[in-house]
Write a protein that binds this DNA or RNA. Structure first.
Lengths: 208, 208
DNA sequence: CACATTAGTGAACACTTGTACACATGAATA
DNA sequence: TATTCATGTGTACAAGTGTTCACTAATGTG
C-alpha cells in the first residue's frame, strides 16, 4: 500500500504546477486540462489537488505568479549582459530566445493564456507584460537613448516592442527546440522587427 | 418524438460550426469544447456530429477556412473605402475594428487558435495571416507608397503590421463590445503603433 | 417509380470527470 | 507529552465523455 509520503512542505503543490506545465509542454492546451489529468501526471491522488488549489483557474493564477519570476530573471540577465548600446537589440533578442527555450513550457503557458479561458489569468499575463514594458522604458530612459521621446511615446514604443517579441514567441514555440535553422530565422526576424520599431521611434514626432 | 428534420443540405454542419463559435463567444476556449457540448448547443443529437466532422480538430480546420472568407471580405471593404493615402492607417484600423466587433466570435477563435492545441489549426491561421500580409504588401506597392523598400523589407514591415493588429485583437476582445471608451483607446493605440511602424519603414535602410 | 445515398435519430458502451467524505499521519504548538 | 492542524490517501458517486450500432426518413439519380 502506498504510504503517506510527506516531505518538504509545498512539494506536492509544486509537483502539481510542474505537472500542468509538463502537459502544456507536450502540446496540450491549458484550458483543456482537468484536475484528474494533472494529478495523474504529478503522481498524486486526485483529492490532493484541493489541498492546494480551488480549481484549475486557481492553479493557472499561481503559474502566472511564477511566470513573473521567470520574466524578472530574464530582465536581470539582460541588464547584466547588454553592455554596448549598438548591440542592444541583438543581444536582448538572443537572451530572450535562450530563456524561452530554457523555459519552453512556461512561455507556452503564457502564449496560451493571452487568449485563454480564464479572464483572471489573461489579466495576470497582460499585467506581467505591462510591467515588462515599463521596466524596458525605464532602462531605455536611463541609458539616455530616447531623449527626444515623451514618456507617453516611449511607453507606446516599449509596448509595441513587448508585443512583437511576445508574438515571436508563438513562432518560436511552434518549431522544434532542435531546429536551429528555423530558430535562427526567428531570431533574425525578431531583431529586424525591433530595429524597425526603433528606427520609427528615432524619427517619431509626437504631434504627427 | 422528434421527427427527422432534414432541410437544406449542410444546414446541420453550419449549425455545429455556429454552435462552436457561439460557445467561444460566451467565453469558452475552443480547446476545451467537447463534441457533446457542441451538438447540445446546436440542438442536434451527438451522433450527427460524425456525419460532418471527424473530430473537433476537423471542425476547427473548417472554421479556419470560413475565417479566411471573413478576412477577405474585410480586405475588400478596406480597399474600397480607403481612398486617400493620408488617412490610410486610421481608416484601415477603423474598418478592422468594426469587422472584429461584427464577427467577434470568429476573431476570438482566431486569437485562441494562434496558440491553440491543434497544430493544423495553428498553421491554418498563421497561413491566413501570411496571406493577409502579402496582400497588404501588394496594395502598398500598388499605391507606390513604399518605393524605397526592397520586397523583402516590405514583407517584413507588413508582417509586423499584421502581427501588431492581431495582438490588438486580443485587447479588443478582452473588453465588452459596448465599452466605447475602451474601444476608442484601443483604436487610437493601434493606429499609433502602425504609424510608428511606417515611420520606421520610411527611414529604413536595408543595409543597416 | 425503384433504388442507392445522405443525413437525421435513440440506445448503449466503457471510461473519465469533478467533488465529497472519512480517515491517517507527520509536524508544529502548547 | 498531548493536541491540533495541514497534508496526504482510498472509496464512492452521479454526471458527462467519445464512439459504435442499428434504424429511418428525405433526397437525388437512373
Amino acid at each position: 500500500m502506498a504510504e503517506k509520503q510527506r516531505r518538504k512542505p509545498g512539494e506536492t503543490r509544486e509537483k502539481l504546477m510542474t505537472a500542468a506545465l509538463t502537459l502544456v509542454g507536450k502540446g496540450r492546451h491549458f484550458a483543456s486540462l482537468g484536475i484528474r489529468e494533472v494529478t495523474r501526471q504529478a503522481g498524486v491522488v486526485p483529492t490532493s489537488f484541493y489541498r492546494h488549489f480551488r480549481n484549475m483557474d486557481d492553479l493557472g493564477l499561481q503559474l502566472v505568479d511564477e511566470l513573473g519570476l521567470v520574466l524578472r530573471r530574464m530582465m536581470r540577465e539582460a541588464r547584466a549582459n547588454v553592455l554596448q548600446a549598438d548591440k542592444l537589440i541583438e543581444e536582448s533578442v538572443a537572451i530572450f530566445i535562450s530563456h524561452a527555450q530554457a523555459n519552453r513550457s512556461f512561455f507556452l503557458f503564457m502564449a496560451q493564456g493571452l487568449a485563454g479561458e480564464s479572464r483572471a489569468v489573461q489579466e495576470g499575463i497582460r499585467s506581467e507584460m505591462r510591467f515588462f514594458a515599463s521596466e524596458l522604458a525605464n532602462d531605455l530612459r536611463r541609458l539616455r537613448l530616447v531623449d527626444h521621446l515623451t514618456d507617453q511615446d516611449l511607453d507606446m514604443t516599449c509596448d509595441l516592442v513587448v508585443r512583437s517579441v511576445a508574438f515571436s514567441l508563438t513562432d518560436l514555440l511552434g518549431v522544434s527546440a532542435e531546429d536551429d535553422y528555423q530558430i535562427e530565422q526567428i531570431r533574425k526576424r525578431t531583431t529586424r522587427f525591433l530595429q524597425l520599431i526603433f528606427v520609427g521611434a528615432a524619427h517619431w514626432q509626437s504631434a504627427g
